[in-house]
Design a protein around this nucleic acid. Sequence first.
DNA 1: TATTGTTATACTCTATAACTATA
DNA 2: TATAGTTATAGAGTATAACAATA
Lengths: 148, 148
Amino acid sequence: MAKPNEPPGAELGALVDDLLQSTGMLLRRLRSEAAAEELSLSQAAVLGRLARQGDATTADLARAEGVKPQSMGATLAGLEQQGLVARRPHPTDGRQFLFRLTPAGQAARDRRRLLKHKWLTEALGGVTPAERAALGSALAILRRLSAS
Amino acid sequence: MAKPNEPPGAELGALVDDLLQSTGMLLRRLRSEAAAEELSLSQAAVLGRLARQGDATTADLARAEGVKPQSMGATLAGLEQQGLVARRPHPTDGRQFLFRLTPAGQAARDRRRLLKHKWLTEALGGVTPAERAALGSALAILRRLSAS
DNA sequence: TATTGTTATACTCTATAACTATA
DNA sequence: TATAGTTATAGAGTATAACAATA
């Protein structure tokens, strides 16, 4: 199947390319939808993480999202200015802050989740269990790639 | 399995979230590697497309990559300035230009492909046929999502 | 009128580097 | 010294809007 002049694994490389290109398009689409809403994509990700995993510091959130602490600091500053998260001093370490969802932040997240659910069920209503399992496997492979 | 207060499909939503987050990390990783190279990520994508599909106009490439013609124009301007692509007037439509890979562009793409292959085989050397199929299924689902 | 492409401008997201405060 | 966080700056990538040239 592989052509003589192509390196081996070219087929897999093309698949990864396509995967990245599709995800890029999806991210842009979600971003432009987010622009019409009250939350940016990175803000929504942070709200979701705080909701699922509880209070956290800047460094915690940066690690979890795979960005630099300075980048997470900028995202958190935006959320804080909108009143969607609030900080309190860390009980034992004076350098750190613990961020939590405010009621307004929880409400914003709920609204966002409702929209997302509507969109997901429209687009992925017919996802079979086999396809769902495939998504899980693909996720594992992508994690291997981004960790390598 | 679904908690009472969660909308149905929340599990699938979380999976898609994770997939986007992992791919986002992978894209950032590739971007920072690209920063050390001669090509940006969007430039590499365009070179690859020209190599695989032959000469194309700005509008063609914008459609194929899922971006606005103005954005593709910016990417092409960068490639042209580096001498990696060249334009010629469209034979019948005076408004359009056809872009093609220059020898330097082809060489840059070849170098990039070699690096990518090395990385892919290191990271994905042990990908099984089943995992490869899973990636294909995930791609199909992502395409459904970004087209919806 | 519609389409191709360009220019000007702005936004999101992230990065690097230099700094302050605390451990 | 090392770590948490902030500030300043820059870069990639894309978007919208207004425009010129051509169809």
